[in-house]
Each structure stands twice: as C-alpha cells, then as structure tokens.
Simulated scan of single mutants.
Amino acid sequence: MEFHVLKPKHLLFLPLFLLSLSACTERIAIETAGGGGRLIIYGYITNESAEHAIRITRSSGYFAQTRPEGVSGALVTVRSDTDTFAFTESDTEPGLYRTAPGTAGTEGSNYTLHVSLDFDGDGQAEEFEASSRLPLAARLDSIGVGQSPVFDEFMEIRFYGRLPDNAENYLSIHAYINNTALNDSLPDFTVVGGKYLVQKELNGLPCFYLNQEEGGKLSWGDYVSLRVDVLTKEYTDFLDNAASEAQGSIPLFSNPPANVETNIRSLSNPSRIPVSGFFSAFSSSRAGVYYYGND
C-alpha cells in the first residue's frame, strides 16, 4: 500500500491560503436595471359548463416579493368554427378575464384565443393568438376507494370507465376529499399517458394513493371524488417543463433556468413584446363516492 505524506511547505501554504479566503469580506453591491416586464397570458377552456378564465399579467423581477401585476384593458375572445366566447375583466382582480357562467367547449373542436392590448403603452394595440384542440373526454363511470394491496399505509382511488379510442390519452388526475383538492399545485399534478395507456377499458385501475399516516387520511362518511382531464401532448409538455423550472436546478451549478416554451404567438412584431404562458383546451370527467370502508 502506498502512502503520500504532505510536505511541510504544503502545510505552511494551506493556512495562508485559508487566511486569504477569510479576509475577503468586502461587500460588493451590483445595481441591476429593472426591465419593463414580460407579458404572460395563461388560461384554458374545457367541456365543463363553468365560468372559464384567462389571466394576463406582467412578469416581476426575480427577487420580487409581490405577485405579478395584472394587465387591464385587454380584449379577450376564444373562438371555434361554431362558437365565440367573450371574456370580461373582473371588477375586483385586474388582469383576470372571465366568460359568462355556463360556458362550455365542445369535444373535438379547435379553439383559438385572441388577445388585443396596448402592453407597452405606445397607443397601438398588440395582437396575440394561440390555438388548441379540445380532446374527447374519458368516460368515468364510477370510482372505488380501498386499501392498497401493495402499500399498507395507503388507500387507493380506482378508476372505472373507458378512455376515448382516438385520443392521445394524456391524463391529469385530480383527487378531492369533501371537495377540497389534494393536488392542486403544479408540483403535485399527476399526469400519465402516451405509451402507458394502451388499454381503453379500465376496470378498477388504481390512479391515486391516499397516505393514511399524513394528509389525505379518510374518515367515515367522507366524500371522495376524482377529476380526470384528457390533455393534449403540447399542454402536457408545458406542465412538465413548468414544473421542472419551478423545482429549480440541481446541482447548484447546473444550467440556468429558461423561459418555458409557449404557444402564445404575437401577430405584431414578435421581438418587440416578449410573451410567455399557454392556452389550452382539455376535457374533464368527474365521479365521486362516499367512504364507508373498503369497497
């Protein structure tokens, strides 16, 4: 076995080197100029009869402690071959634009979002568009709740129904207990699909797990419900990329964060008004059951 001995000159150099590091304590303040902010447009329309929303904001600085500023005064519409949905800005929340209650998209239809606004304040309106197809919905006949045969501390929610035959079948699964969402934040979204969903008829497929030792613990009589969204591949990729960027880079010195790819396009000068965000159409199905022990 070979041993390497640190020579005295190295021992002398090491504390001097460490002392030089500890002596570098002068603070350097770097002033950075704030930009004008980036235009962010985000929203979607579904097959559910509801009040749909599009949110338009101006991005904040990286270290900002406030929410992005809402952008008012936009003209917002969503059109298909047969329908036109007008969006009205909220009286209490600038930048939030809503349809009338009871608005619903049609499965299989293509929808185009159009936004017109003077973002840079030069007196001329800029135009923006994005398009998406609303996929066919999954048929969610019922759900079941029972003990997982694999994980002792988990209950599982089971899917009974059928996937559409001619859809990409990217599914986003959302679970609720007594109408309170369990995974409503982006990092908690459960999206499955593509090559993993070959079978169309699903007879008790476990699709969500409830940890009985943490949040999600069930009590007798709780109402458990499931929402299954069928997404396009483009929207699935957007959610995946957004979640990755929100999580941050590991290790520390990996590539810097980048703007998530958008489907919002400028009909004016694209380089003059930078824009981010996404517009999508997707279909939703819901079912629920009261919990009175294992099914």
Rank of each mutant, 00 (worst) to 15 (best):
173 I>S: 04
276 S>D: 14
255 N>E: 15
37 G>Y: 03
142 S>V: 04
246 A>C: 03
259 N>H: 09
129 E>M: 11
39 L>D: 02
81 D>R: 09
261 E>N: 11
245 E>C: 05
175 A>V: 02
7 K>V: 08
67 R>Y: 00
5 V>F: 13
109 S>N: 13
110 N>P: 00
49 S>M: 01
248 G>E: 06
145 V>Q: 03
72 S>D: 00
128 F>S: 04
123 G>S: 07
224 V>I: 15
38 R>T: 10
204 G>Q: 09
160 Y>F: 15
83 D>R: 13
42 Y>E: 10
250 I>M: 13
163 L>G: 11
278 F>G: 03
39 L>S: 03
228 V>C: 06
261 E>T: 13
100 A>W: 02
289 V>E: 04
165 D>K: 13
115 V>A: 05
167 A>P: 11
33 A>V: 10
207 C>N: 11
132 S>E: 07
59 S>K: 01
283 S>P: 04
190 T>Q: 15
98 R>I: 02
208 F>C: 09
42 Y>L: 02
183 N>F: 11
149 P>G: 06
188 D>P: 00
180 T>D: 11
1 M>K: 11
44 Y>G: 06
164 P>L: 12
26 E>D: 07
260 V>N: 03
115 V>G: 03
98 R>F: 05
27 R>T: 14
30 I>E: 05
232 T>F: 08
282 F>P: 01
217 K>A: 14
27 R>P: 00
207 C>R: 10
50 A>W: 01
197 L>N: 14
65 Q>I: 02
120 D>I: 11
38 R>C: 00
74 A>C: 07
10 H>C: 01
8 P>L: 02
156 E>N: 09
198 V>Y: 06
253 F>L: 14
291 Y>C: 03
130 A>L: 08
274 P>L: 10
183 N>W: 12
263 N>S: 09
230 V>N: 15
